[in-house]
Design a protein around this nucleic acid. Structure first.
Lengths: 190, 190
DNA sequence: TTTTATTGATTGACGAGTCAATAAAAGCCT
DNA sequence: AGGCTTTTATTGACTCGTCAATCAATAAAA
C-alpha cells in the first residue's frame, strides 16, 4: 500500500533511527538492516533512498550538527552581549546535544571523520563555526580571545568524550564545570 | 621450523602490530588477519595465543596504558615538588603517548570501552590514577585541587580527541596550550 | 612420545548492495 | 468516466564478499 510523498518521511525516520541505533550499539558497526528495522522499513528501501551506508551516517551527522546549530542560535538570540560565551556553553550541553544517544553518536562521528573525507569536512565546518562564535563572544572580555576559544573548545570536547564513558556526568555537572573554567579564565584577566 | 619459547615474542609482536594497524585503519574493524600479517604470522596463531579478537584489543590497550604509566612515572621522578602537575602534562604529550598511531589507538579504545566491560575497567583505572596524581600535584597550589584536576583531565582528553582529527596539532602546540591553561588556573588563585 | 609451534583449509555466520516483482497513485488520452 | 501508461513506493530473495573461529595436519624440540 504505497502512499505517495513518502521520501522525506522515510529519510527522516532513517536519520532518527540511525542516531538511536548508534546510541545503543555505540559503534559504527550498526547494520543497515538494524537501522531500517528500527525505522520500520526494509533495508532495501533505506538503500534506495540513501544509496549506501556512508550516506546514511553522513545524513545523521548533518542532523546532529544542525541540531547543535539551532540550539546555539537559540541561546545566542536571548543572550546579553557579555554573556555570549555562556550561551554557547549552555547550547553545547543542552538536552538536544548532550543526551546519551547523541553523545554516543558524536563519538562514532569522531571515528568516522578520521577516515571519511566528507565527515571530516562536516566536522571542520562545525568547528570553525563554534570557534568563530566563541572568539567573537570572548573578544570583549579576554585579552587573547583566540586562545581562550581554543581552550574552551578543547575543554568542551573533553567533557563530551568523558560523558560517553562515565554516564554519571550529568548535563548539569558538565555545564557547571565548563562555566567555572570560563569564569576562571575571565577572572584571570583582571 | 618451530622454535621453542616463542610465546612472549609472538604476543608482543601481535600487540605492536595491533596498535600499528589501529593507527592505520583508525577504527576497530581491523581484522585479525591484518594484525597477524603485520606481525608476520598466521591468523590462526594469533587466535591460538590470545583466544580471540577482544583479548587482542585488550592486550593492546593494556600496553598503551602501561606505556603512559611508565612515561608519567619517569617525568614525576625528575620533577620538583611544585612542578608535578607540569610533569604529568608533559607525560601526556610525550612522544610515546602522543603519536598519530597512539592517538588513533586511544580513540578506538574510547569506543571499545563504551561496550566492553573489561576495557571500561582498564580506562577507569587509568583515569583514577591520573586523577589522583593530579590532585596530589595540585593540592599545594590550588584551593580546590579536585576541581582543578577534573578540569585538566577534561582539557587533556579534549586535546587528544582533537589531535585525532586535526593532525596539525603538533605535540608541542598541545603541551603549550595545556600549560597555559594550567598557569592561568594557578594564577587565578593568587 | 609428548609437548610446543605453526599453518592451510574450512566452517558458519553475517552484512552491504542489487534486482526483479508487486502495487498503489498520478497523469493522460478519448 | 474508463482504461492506458508512467512514476513512486516497497520488499523478499539473492549475490558476493568478508571475517572470526576451529581443526586437522605438519614439524621441530624435549
Amino acid at each position: 500500500m504505497p502512499k505517495v510523498g513518502m521520501e522525506p518521511i522515510r529519510r527522516e525516520a532513517i536519520v532518527r533511527a540511525t542516531i538511536a541505533e548508534l546510541g545503543v550499539k555505540k559503534s559504527l558497526d550498526v547494520t543497515v538492516s538494524q537501522i531500517a528495522k528500527r525505522a520500520g522499513m526494509s533495508s532495501a528501501l533505506a538503500h534506495h533512498y540513501f544509496g549506501g551506508k556512508d550516506q546514511i551516517f553522513l545524513a545523521a551527522m548533518r542532523q546532529i550538527l544542525s541540531d547543535f546549530g539551532a540550539e546555539a542560535r537559540g541561546e545566542l538570540k536571548t543572550a546579553a552581549p557579555h554573556q555570549r560565551a555562556q550561551a554557547i556553553i549552555r547550547a553545547c550541553f543542552a538536552p538536544s546535544c548532550f543526551t546519551p544517544d547523541v553523545i554516543a553518536a558524536w563519538m562514532t562521528f569522531y571515528v568516522l571523520a578520521q577516515t571519511n573525507a566528507q565527515a571530516l569536512r562536516l566536522w571542520q565546518i562545525y568547528q570553525s563555526r563554534i570557534r568563530s562564535n566563541l572568539v567573537y563572544a570572548l573578544r570583549p572580555v579576554l585579552r587573547d580571545p583566540v586562545d581562550g576559544a581554543e581552550n574552551m573548545i578543547a575543554l568542551i570536547d573533553g567533557l563530551y568524550i568523558r560523558a560517553a564513558l562515565s554516564a554519571p556526568e550529568e548535563p548539569q555537572l558538565a555545564v557547571n564545570q565548563a562555566m567555572r573554567v570560563l569564569n576562571t579564565l575571565l577572572k584571570a584577566e583582571k
